[in-house]
Amino acid sequence: MKTTLITLTMLLASFAGMSQKNEYYQAMGETLGQYATCRTVEDFQALGNRFSMIAGNEKDEWLPLYYHAHCYIIMSFMEPSDAAKKDAWLDEAEKSVNKLVAIAPGEADVFALQAMLCTGRLVVNPMERGQQYSMLSGQAIGRALGIDPSNPRARLIKLQNDMGTARFYGKDTGEYCSEAKELLAGWDSFTPKSGLHPAWGKDQAAEIVSGCK
């Protein structure tokens, strides 16, 4: 589906000549295509660089900023121990998230990403930041679901947060399985607005479900 759309956009792009907007669609499609092959921090850094370049050209578009922040958040999750590095990357992600909140305040995915950023801050030092950032993450998720209760990424992050809390209190996470299954089953019924819009998360949902008996 995504591939077809990207191909279509690129086809359109090459036929319509290289107007700036089409170059944008092409560059986005091409860069999004590279997500699947990213394995290391360096890969995501390179991808983030691309999105940063695109964001620089297209000041009104929120998607390049979204993916830029997303790459840097993933990088911080991938770094095993260097807290200063993690925070520096999250600072970079936060700059984009702040811009996103200003230019696309109606997008549920923006706040879902903000929640992910807060979780990223939390894991740098759970003991000192747990209280503050779990609250902030919960707030951002609340805003995302307020905008669109069906957004699968917002639901996924909420589920991950809730399960994390349950685990912390030594409770059985089994009660979340039905919710996870429901989320996974209905994942594809949520249609992104375009092939460039966020569509990730199904794998993580599937992973939660596979952990259920």
Partner: peptide
């Protein structure tokens, strides 16, 4: 500096530095 962003301003042509 590996991972630096190098690109032509105002275009979509660019890359990142290798290791």
């Amino acid at each position: 500096l590996p991972g630096a962003n190098v690109y032509l301003k105002g275009t979509y042509d660019g890359t990142s530095t290798d290791t």
